[in-house]
């Protein structure tokens, strides 16, 4: 029962955050500095999620900055594909294929 309450709490804070500016605050009240910063949200958020997930790998999530880190190598390959093709579909497909190939080769 307690866990259900917790999940509802998690949902409520998440919804409140998403609602915040969209519903309760007019954007005209946002100071210029905040609006400036908003332009960098995507690059900052995305890489902050990506980088740890390819540096800390394996069962024990240990730090691994070597060529033996298959996820890191596959991600670098996929990043190159993403850079040149700008295609989500191709990036995911080639990145997964690269990882599977590396795992198979090891």
């Amino acid at each position: 029962m307690n866990l259900w309450l917790t999940i509802v709490g998690m949902g409520l804070v998440t919804y409140a955050i998403r609602l915040s500016v969209l519903v309760f605050v007019s954007h005209t009240h946002l100071p210029g500095a905040v609006r400036d910063a908003l332009r960098f949200v995507m690059p900052a958020v995305l890489f902050a999620i990506i980088l740890p997930s390819v540096l800390y790998v394996g069962e024990d999530q240990s730090f691994e900055l070597t060529l033996g880190n298959q996820r890191l190598v596959a991600a670098c390959f996929a990043a190159t594909v993403a850079w040149f093709t700008k295609s989500v579909w191709l990036t995911v497909a080639t990145g997964m294929a690269a990882l599977w190939l590396l795992q198979w080769a090891w």
């Binding site: 995507m42 390819v54 991600a75 993403a82 295609s87």
Partner: peptide, 8 residues
């Protein structure tokens, strides 16, 4: 992470 790379 692959999807996010493609967005990044």
């Amino acid at each position: 992470p692959l999807t996010f790379l493609a967005l990044l």
